[in-house]
Design a protein around this nucleic acid. Sequence first.
DNA 1: CCTATAGCCTGACGGC
DNA 2: TGCCGTCAGGCTATAG
Length: 265
Amino acid sequence: MPELPDVEVYRRRFEQTSLGYEIQAVEIGEERIIKGIAADDFRSRLIGREFAGVSRHGKYCFAKVDQQTGWLMMHFGMTGYLTHIRSQQEKPKDWVVCFTFDSGSALVYASTRKLGHLSHVSDPGDFIADQKLGPDPMDRSFSRETFLGLVTGRKGRLKTALMDQSLLASIGNVYSDEILFQAGFHPGVKISDLGREQLIAIYEVMGRVLESAIEHGADPDRLPADFLIPHRSENDHCPVCGGPVKRVSLSGRSAYFCPSCQPGA
DNA sequence: CCTATAGCCTGACGGC
DNA sequence: TGCCGTCAGGCTATAG
């Protein structure tokens, strides 16, 4: 569930459960999830040390390792998540990497499809620059003017732009659908079809959707009643008008929308 | 610059 | 019950 709200929820979980304990063991269930560094090096950079803080940029998490120059980097792919367990018996079936602390508890990176990756980076800022990630929309400096500057004059669809991590890092297929739904635009709408006032409205909706989702733990069952996300399947009902939800394929991804609340091409 | 496709992986679901 | 195709919230590489 790894778009900005989900990753922020994992970041907070990490921060609340796993800082300040000595890492006693690092088990790696699937070595291919570790990228850019040998598994043994990855382990030895962590064992005997502590996590001192966790930050996030877009869909990436960075954990500072104390007494070290580097950081643990995590990306969650399509199915990755973080969970904190009190004992090894609680390890989920799809666990991939397990960081066990001197307290006996552990932080587990789990993922069914294992499309994400973990690595070690010397500096998150450099990593973000190297990956050519755009700004994070939850960052304080991300203003309305920042957003207008990024999208104004761009060709192509608004949905594609919202999902473009090099333009702004954070939003994926699900939340771009939610933003379009809340703003009342068809998923196929082009940026060139939108005026400044409409783009400002989209900026405001984006902020509200992301904040609200984080507030509700990014859990589809707890999101506000007017959110489309829990109804993202063909012929489910629109939470606002009750009409059928439809699906269209765009750029190889499925976009779900309400034809009556989001009219247009 | 833009769009579309395939591939990486595994599991759930519906139809027969 | 089993088999088969489709689909799933990410990203990258490639081709047009």
